[in-house]
Amino acid sequence: MLERSAIFRLLAAAPLCALCACATTSASQAEVGALQAELRALRESQTRLVDRLERLEAHSAVERARTPGSSPATKQAIPASVRVAAPAQDEALTMTPELSVVKLKPRFEPAPRLATQVAVVEPESEQVEMFISNVPDGAPESGSGGATMVTTREDDPADQPDPDVLEADYEKSVSLLRTGNVEGGVQRLRRFSEENPRHPRADNALYFSGLGQMGLNEFKDAARTFERLIATYPAGDAMLDGMLRLAECRMRLNQAADARALYTRVVTQFPGTAAATQAEQRLAALPQ
């Protein structure tokens, strides 16, 4: 019985011993890991300190070599295996050799002087007579020749019509065509173009008056209006449309050859425009 009880005690104590052994082993491994990490940190710190010490020694050796009056023994004390770091910005400026400034004379000569004097030429008498007239009796003379400049109505700003009034007059004339008073609109537009030939709307006034004449079946008068438009305002925005309308008038007057010539002129002289596209289509529709 005593032997059995001793065996039971041993069997009961065996698990406790195993647990203690496992705990001791785990604690030992943790301590070993911590010591290894601390050792690595110390080695890294030592490596950084060694590198810094080498840089300081190299810098000190360079300073001793550059200092005047240093002995050869001091210069020989510089270790051959020392790694020299790149000099700082101020050191690089100090080590730059001094350069002498040389002024070069320009190789080019100054530009030659150009003659700026212009000969004065008197105008011809025929040209002068276009701008002067005899001074009437009692009028002050402007010069020894007894002549003065002629002032026209267009040159006097006070006699110029109000632009807003002209614009309103043009818009009202066009509205007459749209509302059915074609004859009245044609007359107002023709008068507008005759009285204000330099107005920006003068070419459009001629164009719309020609359209009104076509609406009244007055194709001869309309053709003359479009011819005047093309001859007077060749750079106006209504010129190309006026050429197309003139060709239509030629067709109405049984002048197919003239109409074909006008369409061909639009295609050849103004390619790529909308008017040229219309002219090509109408050329294709003309009888051969």
Rank of each mutant, 00 (worst) to 15 (best):
H199Y: 06
Q255T: 00
A257Y: 08
V174R: 12
Q160V: 08
A147G: 02
A202D: 10
L216N: 07
L177D: 01
L253I: 10
P140Y: 01
K220C: 00
N196P: 01
M239S: 11
D221P: 11
G184M: 08
V186L: 04
R178A: 10
R191C: 05
Y233I: 05
Q187I: 05
N181C: 05
D156H: 09
A205K: 05
H199E: 01
A223F: 13
R190L: 13
R252D: 06
P140L: 02
V174Q: 06
P234M: 14
L166Y: 04
L253S: 11
S193A: 15
D155L: 12
S209K: 02
R178K: 10
T148G: 11
M239C: 05
T151Y: 11
G138I: 08
L189I: 08
G212I: 03
R190T: 02
R198H: 13
M149W: 09
S144H: 13
L216P: 04
R250T: 09
L206F: 11
P163L: 03
G236S: 14
M149A: 12
A257W: 04
F226T: 12
R228C: 05
E154F: 11
A259W: 07
L189N: 05
R198A: 14
R191V: 06
E195L: 14
M243T: 03
P234E: 10
M214P: 00
P163W: 03
C249N: 11
F219Y: 15
E171H: 15
E195C: 05
V174G: 06
D169Q: 09
C249V: 10
G210A: 07
M243P: 03
Q187E: 03
D156M: 11
A205M: 08
L176E: 08
A222R: 11
I230C: 03
A231M: 03
E227W: 00
D241A: 12
R198G: 13
P163A: 07
A168R: 15
S142C: 06
G210D: 00
L211M: 06
V165F: 15
P197H: 08
R201K: 15
C249W: 05
A247D: 10
N217F: 01
K220R: 13
